[in-house]
């Protein structure tokens, strides 16, 4: 392993970059789930689920 790849590997194995990224992605995931499941949007998404049944065009 040359110096550059060793340094890269140690950075990643050292863990803080990976740790911060993992934490950030977890926050994104939780926030996004809360957003999607918020009671405020329930009706809006129920309407969205019915979109395939309203194609109203001419073939």
């Amino acid at each position: 392993m040359n110096t550059v790849t060793r340094a890269a590997a140690e950075t990643i194995q050292g863990g803080w970059v990976l740790g911060v990224m993992t934490g950030l992605f977890l926050v994104f995931f939780v926030a996004w789930t809360v957003w999607a499941y918020s009671p405020k949007r329930k009706a809006q998404f129920e309407d969205a689920a019915r979109l395939p049944f309203a194609d109203g065009g001419i073939e």
Binding site: W32, T33, A36, Y37, R41, K42, F45, E46, A48, A49, R50, P52, F53
Partner: peptide
Amino acid sequence: RPVYSYRLSII
């Protein structure tokens, strides 16, 4: 019938 959970589909 509509999909079981539209919110699940977003996740």
